[in-house]
Design a protein around this nucleic acid. Structure first.
Lengths: 290, 290
DNA sequence: CCGATTCTGAAATTTCTGATACAGCTTTCG
DNA sequence: CGAAAGCTGTATCAGAAATTTCAGAATCGG
């Protein structure tokens, strides 16, 4: 997204402040525009030039001159700045919502935690209940065969999911995403199979290929991804996006883990009748070995 | 029902809720549009159709069909509704006080998320800052060799940590906890080695044994565990406990993941001078292969 | 009070955006 | 397996919105 001008979202002084400060340098009609904008900040500026002009009681060109004087390349530029400022402002209270900065606590850890918690909240907000339920139902169908897979980092999450599912029900396995080995196994993938794929940016070619192949053969694909959606979404029946941005050089997978654990919990509950004896049996076997 | 323009600003249910609710009635591209909008609500919808379409990875007409299906007369209508909703929400501070619209967001998911968030808070509270910093310092020492390990479920977290550390620095590997294979490798474990072990209840015999053996040979052990502390704590130099209780038959590993990611972030930052070129090199190699 | 400068708005112009028609493709259903 | 239905993107168009032009109005200085 190439922004044309110098309207960086990091301008410390909000545009409103700047306008107040430069108010006396404005011409009369510019003042009227400024007053309107400030009195309904920033929504008045999100309408069209014509509407803004009418509401301010001035002409369209005057509005244009006004935003030009503020240093914007044009009206769209101006609106974009307002939107970005608004978005930043709306998201920030969430970041500083928790006053957990008691001075103590590794600051790195505590701020990181705040960001992660924000991610979890946002993730839950954006999940469609029907989608979540559909996934739970799908994975509770004991006639289906379930295969988990993931990329470089998300592969670990796939393993995590698999290790739980394996205990709750049968016909569960993990497919190595990176190697070319999965191609052989594809011959057995069909209509009754479910692929649960984890994939966040940068999306991984081999995982995408795996899912496309599986989908082509009639398998049902469930995707856990970031809000920008892996290309796998094209072939996926169900998509569960999670927010991943954290104050780090890496993305955070906490949201994906949350979804995974919630699904595991729900499926376990739904299959409890059969899962309980199964889990006891697993436990017995483990103890014998030890 | 006639598709009138019933977009009065007083529609009780926010548009976001309605979209979440009707999600499964959407076509694939409509879902992509919906996901984009929900993940950046409502700002994504304030751009132009073209930009929205590009960001969602679909065509402009699909976006138009999406907003039409939502019952709007056109895209400007849709935008107007978003602006009004936003303005109303911003003016009533009460509206956004509790973002957990429990109206019916998958109840299982949302209550589960609340529990997990509580765990994260509690985890951060109970971490000794000095301990956290000491772990970061230890793992930033490039002369050390780092080995990750874990149990049945936590092994996935160890792999997750390993996959990140492997890129940031050298001398990193993963030791399979369950198998007896690690006994052979113990001969190479000594004073310069660090074992990072993940272990929560029920604590796993073989992982415990691994750590005890390694400690006996002079290795430094870092333990990530639950608040009841794995027996490994006795031989561990540093212990980072995380809360794990969730409304499920299983424990939640989200706290452990949080700690892991926070450590990864901190180490990456501290080693940035050497990590950056290393990461670029890794990236180059990956691209060549592809 | 007059001329110069600045400001302002109506109208013309240009750019760009939203909307539509249509054809190819996929999926579904018999 | 084939036909029907539905979905999606390309190309295109109409129209609206932003921008520029320019002439008239207001203001200011002398």
């Amino acid at each position: 997204m190439g922004k044309s001008r110098s309207n960086s979202p990091a301008d410390q002084p909000s545009l409103a402040e700047r306008i107040r400060h430069e108010m006396d340098a404005f011409t009369p009609s510019e003042k009227r525009a400024a007053h309107l904008l400030l009195s309904h900040y920033p929504f008045a500026g999100l309408d069209t030039v014509a509407e803004f002009a009418a509401r301010a009681g001035i002409s369209a060109p005057s509005v244009l001159r006004f935003v030009t004087r503020l240093g914007f390349g044009g009206f769209p530029d101006f609106q974009k700045h307002l939107r970005e400022e608004l978005e930043a402002q709306l998201l920030s209270p969430l970041a500083k919502a928790s006053p957990s900065d008691k001075g103590q606590g590794a600051p790195a850890l505590s701020s990181f935690a705040d960001a992660v918690i924000g991610n979890l909240r946002a993730t839950v907000e954006n999940i469609a209940p029907a989608e979540f339920d559909a996934v739970v139902t799908l994975l509770s169908d004991s006639r289906r065969h379930i295969h988990f897979t993931g990329g470089r980092f998300t592969g670990a999450l796939a393993r995590y999911a698999e290790s739980h599912f394996r205990i709750v029900r049968s016909h569960v396995d993990y497919i190595e995403g990176q190697s070319a080995l999965w191609r052989d196994r594809m011959i057995e993938i069909g209509r009754r199979d479910v692929i649960v794929a984890f994939d966040i940016r940068r999306y991984q070619e081999d995982v995408i290929a795996l899912c496309e192949t599986a989908a082509k053969q009639g398998a049902t694909v469930v995707l856990l991804t970031d809000p920008w959606l892996s290309p796998i979404a094209r072939v996926a029946r169900h998509v569960l996006p999670a927010h991943v941005v954290a104050p780090s050089n890496w993305d955070s997978s906490a949201g994906l883990l949350l979804l995974t654990e919630a699904v595991v919990a729900a499926v376990t509950k739904r299959l409890w009748e059969t899962a309980k004896p199964r889990m006891e049996a697993v436990e017995r076997l483990r103890n014998e070995k030890a």
